[in-house]
Design a protein around this nucleic acid. Structure first.
Length: 427
DNA sequence: TCTGGGGTCCTAGGACCC
DNA sequence: TCTGGGGTCCTAGGACCC
């Protein structure tokens, strides 16, 4: 029997903000998405007010004023660094770790049968609180799907006090617990599947566990069949310790203000292609296709809508910023139409491979490629040292601050990654 | 006036092959 | 009246995750 633990940080972004501003403890606070658009993290106090995750911030303004909810712009520099600290601590409990997202990881405790998972879970909780400063929940089960469910139980049921090992429950207690949770709480069941399953009379986790797996595969997909088997304790999902290189790299942003002119779209698309190329090089990958898309505001029914996309296939896979920017620009020029109120642009790199086994172009000059490579090294080094975006193509004549630049009006300092932002402690 | 930004996997259907 | 039977590859779109 495997023993998989899922550890995640409770309302991660909110918890990060609280580490450096303890006065926020016990206060209703939220963290907002880019452009201060939507709520992406809520403290328990805000959840208790019934504010759903993902709500547009301006929709809850009134409620926020009434209850003095404090909002913060997202500070990904801080959250990324805090995430690294959490993962470092977790790795000390088991080297068999899959970092599943910025705030959660699976760890395999099977190779340490002499340790009791629940006791270990309590130790993890205590240590992360003390060493990193964030509260976590721990769920343990014989499969990843059960560990996810256990984690949910650890949060929702006070009697578990943040740590739940479903392996400790006898059959009757496990059944009761599974009857107490709706099918939507299962990892892999979203709103669409929930609706379809409900039609079939499958309403609780227990209903899904006991449903005929092969029939569900026929009706829906192999993904759902695997979920059902995992709920029964049959492991169908591997623990992926090494993340394979990404197959797709996206850089996109909503604009701070609507944009109408090609000139401004060019600037933002160049910026996205540059960022995507940086990510690509960091992965040690090359891409053969660069895609661009534009969006108008789909919530504004009075506006003419236009959501075009196009892509450019490059002569050979590359990680060269200038080639990728040029490709993105060509794609953009093909889809741009005047007269629309654009609110977002994005770039997507695909057909990605390992740069070490890259196939060159037929007419490529070897020393040209070598020069470009050196140029990219300089670019990456400069941006690493002086801040991302300091050096890049198309910067000449750029209007600052651009209309397309993000709005972030409530950002906290980069406490852990910038000397200037270090916390001052008074004696 | 203001509604995020990343990713993954699977399926269906069409084009094409022998 | 009857019009084969396998394959592969690619793409678009859908569903899910955080």
């Amino acid at each position: 029997m495997r023993r998989i633990a899922l550890v995640d940080v409770n309302n991660f972004y909110v918890s990060c903000e609280r580490v450096f501003n303890p006065k926020l403890e016990g206060q209703p606070i939220v963290v907002l998405s880019n452009n201060d658009g939507c709520i992406v993290s809520r403290s328990a106090e805000v959840k208790a007010l019934g504010v759903p995750n993902g709500s547009p911030w301006y929709h809850v303004r009134e409620l926020a004023e009434k209850h003095q909810i404090q909002a913060f712009s997202s500070n990904y520099t801080l959250y990324g660094d805090m995430s690294r600290r959490v993962m470092d601590v977790l790795r000390q409990f088991s080297p068999d770790q899959e970092i599943y997202s910025i705030d959660e990881a699976f760890i395999d405790l099977t190779p340490q049968p002499h340790l009791e998972p629940a006791a270990l879970g309590r130790l993890i909780r205590q240590r992360l609180k003390q060493w990193v400063g964030v509260p976590v929940s721990v769920g343990v089960g014989s499969t990843k799907t059960i560990a996810k469910l256990a984690n949910h139980a650890a949060k929702k049921r006070a009697e578990f006090a943040g740590v739940c090992d479903l392996g400790l429950l006898d059959a009757g207690a496990l059944d009761a617990l599974m009857r107490g949770f709706g099918v939507r709480e299962v990892w892999g069941v979203g709103p669409k599947l929930e609706a379809k399953l409900t039609e079939r009379g499958i309403r609780t986790v227990a209903d899904l566990r006991d449903a005929p797996a092969s029939a569900l595969r026929e009706a829906y997909s192999v993904v759902l069949e695997r979920t059902v088997r995992e709920l029964r304790g049959v492991s169908c999902l591997r623990l992926d310790q090494v993340r394979p290189a990404r197959q797709q790299i996206i850089s996109s942003r909503s604009f701070g203000e609507p944009v109408f002119a090609l000139e401004e779209l060019v600037q933002s698309v160049q910026r996205h292609a540059t960022r995507a190329a940086e990510k690509l090089r960091r992965d040690g990958s090359v891409a053969a296709v660069v895609g661009v898309w534009l969006e108008t505001n789909r919530f504004r029914k009075q506006d003419a809508q236009y959501h075009p996309s196009a892509s450019t296939r490059l002569p050979a896979p590359t990680d060269d910023t200038l080639s990728l920017v040029a490709g993105a620009r060509r794609a953009l020029e093909r889809i741009f139409r005047k007269g629309y109120r654009y609110v977002k642009a994005g770039v997507c790199l695909s057909d990605i491979g390992d740069r070490r086994v890259r196939q060159g172009a037929l007419f490529e000059l070897p020393d040209h490629a070598a020069k470009r490579e050196r140029l990219m090294k300089v670019l990456d080094a400069a941006n690493e040292r002086y801040g991302s975006g300091i050096l890049g193509p198309g910067h000449a004549g750029m209007t600052r601050p651009a209309r397309w630049a993000m709005k972030r009006l409530m950002t906290t300092p980069a406490y852990t990654t910038s000397w200037n932002d270090l916390v001052r402690v008074q004696a």
